[in-house]
Design a protein around this nucleic acid. Structure first.
Lengths: 152, 152
DNA sequence: GCAGATTCAATTGCGAACAATTAAATGTGA
DNA sequence: TCACATTTAATTGTTCGCAATTGAATCTGC
């Protein structure tokens, strides 16, 4: 049984892209934390707000599709954002199964306060924008291939 | 106020590398799930086992440093792995503050059963190994820069 | 040797994340 | 029309992830 050199052993933690992604996600979270604390948001809540700042009045389902999250995650999260007066949840009148999510004036206003966040993250990454964009595109392509496999 | 084109707006979800990483981590998790179910492990538990398969008899602290996790996460997770008879937790005799984690025979044996996991992930990623290695190195470098900023 | 600081694991409390199930509304085919 | 399937959100239960705190063991300077 030929022993592989450590740098090629696929069962080693440091050789796994998945752990790289997993640990990078946590590192991002820790950088975001103090920035989002000032807005009173957690990172997943911030993601929901980003979606709503682009387009308002969406059903829960559609927010879930954009963020790859299901109602088990979103329902309580949206209730917390509603309790913080950032959005309102209303049953659709055309289709009573849907709950539509609409920003309150405070929810809209928060977009301005959040404007500096991406720049702070960029600074922390100590990386050229062009490099980050290239990396992002690669990671998104990988994610989409993985998600395609799940659907099989 | 010059409106940026959508492809450059840093406040757009699709332009954020962080969301790419966040959603890729979840996609990986979903691909791992059925593979790890057969081993009776969750993904974070699998990470701990990877660490211990490389080196046994580690204090909780050291496992935490390798995985970027703290005792609040690890203590209950390790207790569950102990309940599954995969490892044993023992207070160090030289330093009673430390708890040493050692694999049981079953814990060691699981390494063989887990050997095929990385290959299945590789297949799901539909990507050349060389490309994945390059991506992994970039992501690790980014992660380490982010973690360096946090320590400031 | 001893007071005070530091280290380490455990605990508590809260917010994700997701599987599985439930209940209500809507759609579909005969 | 009516039985049956599908869609949508909510709910329940388990596991992470982390901040903050606790308590015990160890280290440090004097």
């Amino acid at each position: 049984m030929a022993r592989k050199p450590a740098t090629l052993d696929p069962q080693r933690l440091d050789n796994q892209i998945c752990f790289a992604v997993y640990s990078a996600a946590h590192a991002f979270n820790r950088v975001y934390k103090p920035l989002l604390d000032r807005l009173g948001l957690t990172y997943p809540q911030y993601l929901v707000m980003l979606v709503l700042w682009e387009r308002d009045d969406l059903p829960v389902k559609e927010i879930g599709e954009k963020l790859f999250l299901d109602s088990g995650t979103l329902t309580p999260l949206l209730k917390r954002l509603e309790a913080a007066h950032l959005l309102k949840r209303t049953r659709s009148r055309e289709d009573e199964r849907q709950v539509l999510i609409a920003l309150t004036p405070q929810g809209h206003a928060l977009k301005e306060k959040a404007r500096s966040v991406p720049q702070s993250i960029l600074a922390a990454s100590k990386c050229a924008v062009s490099e980050l964009v290239a990396m992002k595109d690669e990671i998104v392509a990988l994610r989409d291939r993985l998600n395609a496999v799940i659907g099989e």
